[in-house]
Amino acid sequence: MKQEQEKPKKFGMVIDLDKCTGCGACMVACMAENNVPFKENETNKLDSITWMRVYKLTNNKPFPMTEVCYLPRPCQHCEGLHTGHSPCVSVCPATATDYDMETGIVSQIYTRCFGCRYCMGACPYHARYFNWWDPVWPEGMEKMLSPNVSPRMRGVVEKCSFCFHRYQAAKDKAFYKETRAIAEDDYQTACTQACPAGAITFGDLDNKDHAVYKKKQDPNAFRLLERLGTNTKVYYLSRKEWVRKAGDNYLPGEGLQKPRRIHE
């Protein structure tokens, strides 16, 4: 039998901000899927662990010209200008976070992390959260913890993994069925599936058959802080220019820049 090396994948997301309603279903689906804990008081959003977080953007115009747009922010899984040169991976002294060449997913290994939080400082997207306290579930509610994702302990950093355990399950399934290749439907993140508005699309950005491949080429597509060269794998779509401009730090009077397309 001919042995073939499988082509590396580049999993990513395209989020249509014109469709996103800010309902928060992605946030809850993520927390339920990934055993994300909750505290009695979660109103200090700086220490509120939300792998997926929906931000509210506004055009800052006075009534009644005000406009609002919601922006869901998972980990952007930066590739960097050279493959694997993500801001967080570069600074981790413990190799607790790594760039997976096979999938393009930035991993987080909780047991290796010793909590120095360099990665949190390096991440331009505030996608990483530190466990300042032990997770505590009310009596009886540990029953709903999923065995597919390990609960984290105090003193480690955690973040969105693009539901990597679902990728592993899809791979197992493909192996069992002897199909080898993973179908687009077989691996979808929890937030993508939960989004009632169908705003999130997930797939292999390099695979022409996947929906994300075409969507990321939309003229209204942009990425967050693109000019930093983080080369992220989460694309956003919006017809509104002020929203696209909010995706990066523009100087007053500076025009919207055409994004660099590194993935093509």
Binding site: C23, G24, A25, M27, V28, A29, A32, E33, G140, M141, K143, M144, L145, S146, P147, Q193, A194, C195, P196, A197, G198
Partner: peptide
């Protein structure tokens, strides 16, 4: 461990709202 929307259902076809997604917390 998890509640998701039912795929193929004429009302929600796989999608679910925040409250439905957290329903296991009501059970436990």
């Amino acid at each position: 461990v998890k509640i998701e929307g039912l795929k193929g259902h004429p009302v929600n076809d796989g999608g679910l709202c925040t409250l439905g997604l957290s329903a296991a917390q009501l059970l436990y």
